[in-house]
Each structure stands twice: as structure tokens, then as C-alpha cells.
Design a binder for these strands. Structure first.
Lengths: 187, 187
DNA sequence: GTCTATACGAAGATAGAC
DNA sequence: GTCTATCTTCGTATAGAC
């Protein structure tokens, strides 16, 4: 935030990268600090130098995800409201999906209970609720809200559908895009 | 299978019921044998009398899920192939969703890595692949396969979308049904 | 910043009495 | 079938040297 500082915590970034990978593959609870430190080629203790604990790592992971949703919210605020805003917003979200976000989604998917727990305390939950309320208005009926939410979640759904399948990332994103369009078709 | 036996394992069923609940809420890895036995009002040791271990419990849970997919496969085999079979089959699946299956889906969703692990060894993975191959034929391109799979998975997706939302089960099923229809619309 | 060593509790699982 | 120990392993976390 305060511009230039010393280079310093490159290790931190590396830890986060590997943690995201392992937590996604084996789940948060299924990954021990041991596993993580071994994958990083350092000892557990060194890990504790960089992060207060396992919990701090997942929180840091979440924070970087949060930024993307904030960007979406800002974009929505700058748009003209209207019946096609939902599709435009959802497609914008889907089309801006990159490697990191895919990993984040796989992660979220692989860690349902953990995410729910963090949501309960922190403020994870509601990131998208906020977006949907701004698009549909505060009085939209639940079925519409659910359908809108599903239109945003198509990448996650396509990822799920592709599990165990020889599907490329491009296949997944294409399926997601098509689904978003289908789910936001006018009645 | 061999018809009437002594009443016996009513406890087994009770264990499975509670296990499904806890594994779904807290995740498989996040639920200890302790937690489970306490929720059941018995000791860990008693649990071990009924099941060989934690792993055996989850396997039993999976087996009962398997039956429903088999039923779907059989139904598909009895149908006339054609371009609308996908929609009919997917709607049949969605419309036959009951309490138990919803729990099973929440469970699967809450336990991604565990499910993947079981899939790798046992034969979990591929239950739906089989159905989709029978419907679309063995040569269907990947994007079509993914989309078809997503059409079956709408309940799961709607459940995900409804997390943290004051949505009723009816809302969820309605959203799922609408999504299945949208996803199986003819080009 | 990274290491060795270790404390401490919780987890899965078993033995054997009732 | 259910209980009371008890074993062993693994997990998070800390102390303190280098």
C-alpha cells in the first residue's frame, strides 16, 4: 500500500503458491504443516516464522481472492442498470477467469466445510450476494437470485463436471461460457 | 438379499445416518471417530464393533448412493435413443431428487478430495460418464459431454448457489430444474 | 531466516472385561 | 454389543541454538 519497500517476502509468496496447490489437492484438513513444509523443502519451524499458523495461511489465500470480487463490484456500480446487466456481468466474470482464479475455485470446491467456517467468522460469504443484489435489486425472489448466482458459478460447475475427464482448460471455459449464456437467457 | 433375517443392524443404519450428517457438515477429515461416537451417544469402541474403521463407514455410505445411479443407467438402456433423450434423462434425475440424495450431494460437495481419493481406488468416478456416453454416444466431443454433465449436476450447483441464502429446498429444486432445461435447450 | 529438539494434545485403532 | 483402559502415530505449535 505504501509503495516501495524492500523486496523481502518472496518466500511468503512461494509458500502461498504451494499451499494453494496442496490444499486444493488434498484439502485443508487433509494437508498437514509437515506436508507443506516438506513440499517447500524447509522445516515446519521455518514455516512458522513466516506465518502464525495454518489458519493464517488460508486467510492470506482468501484475501487475495477477495480483491477480484471487489473489482467486479466496482465495475457493476459503474454500469447502467437494466435487464441485460446480469448476463454482461456474469460473462465478464467468466471471461476474466485466469489460472489463479481456477485454482481458487478448485480450492473452494475442495474445501467446502472450511470455507463455510471461514465465512461464518470472517466475511467471505456474501461477496457474490452483494453483486447479485446490486444487479437484481434487493427485492428479487429467491429462485431468480439462485439462478443468477448459478450463472456466475458456471466455471466452478464446469470444473466439477470435468473431474476425471480428459478435458482441457479451454474445454472447461467454453462449457462454462455456454452455460452462463443459457442460464441468463430472457424468459 | 436373502430376504428375512433377524432385525439386528438397526444400529448400523443409525450410525450411517449420523455419519452422513456430520461428514457433510464438518467434512470427512474434519470429523473424528470421537465426534461421531459422541453424537451417537456411544463410545468409540462400540463404533468399531459395527465398522472396521472410518474408511468402512464412508464406503458403506457410497454404496447406497451407487444404487440410484444404477437405476438411472437401467432406465436409459430401456429408452429410445434420440436428441431429446438427454433432457428427459437429466430431468428424470433432477426430479427424482429426494432428501437422501440431497444429503449425498452436500456430502460429495463437502468432501471433494476424499471423494476423489475413493474414486481413484474404488470405482466411484465414471458413474455418470457411463450415463452420458450411453446418451450422447461414445464419440461426442468434450464440450458437449461437459454440458451434458452439467445438466445432471444442477441440483448440486443450485445447492452451492444457495449456501448462506435463506432458500428453501423447493427454491433449490426449482432453480435446478430450470437450469437443467436451460442447459439442454436445442442449439 | 532456518535449523534441531521437543512439548502436548488429538486422532485412529486394539485388548480384554462385562 | 458396549464398556474402560491403553497403544501408537500424527498434528500443531514452541524454545532456543546457529
Amino acid at each position: 500500500m505504501t509503495a516501495t519497500r524492500r523486496a523481502g517476502s518472496e518466500t511468503r509468496a512461494e509458500i502461498l503458491r504451494v499451499a494453494l496447490e496442496l490444499f486444493t489437492e488434498r484439502g485443508f484438513e487433509g494437508t498437514s504443516i509437515r506436508d507443506l513444509s516438506e513440499a517447500l523443502g524447509m522445516t515446519k519451524s521455518s514455516l512458522y516464522y513466516h506465518f502464525e499458523g495454518k489458519e493464517a495461511i488460508i486467510q492470506a489465500l482468501l484475501a487475495s481472492r477477495r480483491a477480484e470480487v471487489d473489482e467486479l463490484l466496482e465495475w457493476i456500480d459503474g454500469q447502467e442498470p437494466g435487464p441485460e446487466l446480469l448476463r454482461r456481468a456474469a460473462l465478464r466474470w467468466v471471461d476474466s477467469t485466469g489460472r489463479e482464479r481456477i485454482l481458487g475455485m478448485r480450492f473452494a470446491h475442495a474445501n467446502g466445510p472450511t470455507m463455510a467456517r471461514l465465512a461464518a467468522q470472517g466475511g467471505t460469504r456474501g461477496w457474490f450476494d452483494e453483486a447479485i443484489t446490486r444487479i437484481l435489486g434487493p427485492d428479487a425472489p429467491m429462485p431468480s437470485r439462485l439462478r443468477a448466482r448459478m450463472a456466475f458459478d458456471t466455471v466452478s460447475a464446469a470444473l466439477f463436471a470435468a473431474q476425471g475427464q480428459p478435458a482441457s482448460e479451454a474445454d472447461v471455459l467454453a462449457a462454462a461460457r455456454a452455460a452462463t449464456i443459457a442460464l441468463t437467457a430472457p424468459d
